[in-house]
Design a protein around this nucleic acid. Structure first.
Lengths: 267, 267
DNA sequence: CGCCTAGTTGACCAGGTTCAACAACGGTGG
DNA sequence: CCACCGTTGTTGAACCTGGTCAACTAGGCG
């Protein structure tokens, strides 16, 4: 679990594949995310879809935004997974969040000029970049969109708190189970998972840095969950075999994700 | 470090002392906070000061906002310390943040209808409550104020991330040292601390729940810092005797607090 | 005076780490 | 086509940071 700085390269000039196309459907997951909490007006939706985008394919394990940099744009995940992390002395690393399609992992950079952490690709990913100026315009003129985006940043913080509980006060097993439950609910909400199965690309080393554990212990903890018949995990695909038992072990209460009630009518 | 639910009472009807006065100076610390990153226009400032406030004194160790509640107002800390926390089965507790004068600890409730954690007083405190409707009006009509408040929520999240690093990847000593450094810089920025001294009211049990440790270990860790001549702590007053050594031990880099550069001219 | 809270100390214990070796796999180049 | 190598995952054994339990001290306050 030691990392070399060279291990993660920056995307500039490393084979990133720029694309100029701007199909409206690329923002579908983001829209779905923003509208989880109530539909946007047709005007708001048009304003959002009118944002100037630069779509770019980024290979696996590249820094998209470096710690200490001063971004002039925000990125939107179109496909693939990203993660946010910070490196410490001695190669230690803490991962703060995983991001999936529809997320804007550096929306906060609109307000904080200098990045206090980095963002990198966990898988090959397709990203859309929007200039800060354009987003600033949008939120200054469209209060409802501003509210929807603000809410995204605030939910982000709620997820941080949930992870803090795991890091500070839960056993390795509970914490890992919690993460597995959380990711399922998040993916399910935007239509990227169903029937308790989803693609789960992190390596055990990445999981370890998210959970504050070692790879060795993640391995053993994962085996415990498998052995107890709670999950299956092969070929990057995770299946939750016993949701109730997992949720109980994790003390998982999805309130913090602030998703719409699932029994409510509609989507 | 076991807590009884009855240990923290809700403020309603427990001797909270309502006041109707509305002196403008009560918002001084909040204004100072919002203007750390650039002055507000005279109009924005007036709009902020024009918010309808209900000022209330709250005794120590009372829930101000309960987990699961649906706040219809935000609170502003005028004096005293608050903390945000979540309880788990078996009396475990994780504290997410300490809040000092000038903070709005539940600003996020403007967007998240149900509280996923609680807020309580760490010391007797004086709070100002503002109806959500009034804040909503404010941010809908005054984009610059909206941006300043949004930034507050986003800095909150940055502090969560710093704590996650401590919880996940630092030794007890480093983590405690980090917290001591962080609080000093925060208080200093709003003029509540200077010369490396400040009032530090948390008990060791509260520190333990913030750091993900036990009171016993907090006690020993604190003695280690004292023994090494790095800090002094008596009568709720903390003094950092060797800032450089503390910052080194904590790997403290204040960038995440997003405070103005201290060498820059001005205030 | 008595009680409650906060802090302190010691002895023992355990969850998770460290170190080391190895297996499985996929990609690559000769 | 296969040898080679890097990455990822797996296992065992020893170790250590921080937890648990329990007892005790020191204030503060009614």
């Amino acid at each position: 679990m030691r990392y070399d700085a060279r291990d993660v390269r920056h995307i500039r000039g490393t084979g990133a594949d720029a694309m100029d196309l701007h199909p409206e459907h690329v923002l579908r997951p983001l829209l779905r995310n923003l509208e989880l909490h109530g539909p946007l007006s047709e005007e708001d939706r048009r304003a959002l879809l009118g944002l100037p985008l630069r779509v770019q394919a980024v290979p696996v394990r590249r820094d998209v935004v470096a710690e200490g940099s001063r971004p002039a744009q925000c990125c939107i995940v179109l496909s693939g997974w990203l993660y946010r992390y910070r490196m410490l002395r001695g190669g230690r690393r803490q991962i703060f969040a995983f991001h999936v399609p529809g997320d804007m992992p550096d929306l906060h950079s609109l307000f904080l000029p200098v990045m206090d952490h980095a963002i990198a690709t966990l898988t090959p990913a397709s990203l859309a970049f929007v200039p800060h100026a354009a987003v600033r315009d949008l939120v200054a003129t469209r209060p409802n969109l501003a509210a929807a985006l603000w809410r995204e940043t605030v939910i982000d913080a709620a997820v941080f708190r949930a992870w803090m509980v795991g890091l500070g006060r839960q056993s390795a097993t509970a914490q890992l189970a919690h993460m597995i439950c959380e990711i399922y609910r998040k993916l399910e909400a935007i239509g990227l998972a169903a029937q308790y199965r989803y693609e789960f690309p992190p390596t055990q080393a990445e999981l370890a840095d998210a959970l504050g554990l070692t790879t060795v212990h993640v391995n053993r903890t994962m085996q415990e969950l498998k052995g107890a018949g709670l999950i299956r995990w092969q070929d990057r695909t995770l299946e939750i075999l016993d949701w109730e038992a997992m949720a109980a072990r994790a003390e998982f209460n999805p309130a913090y994700l602030h998703l719409p009630e699932r029994e409510a009518a509609g989507r």
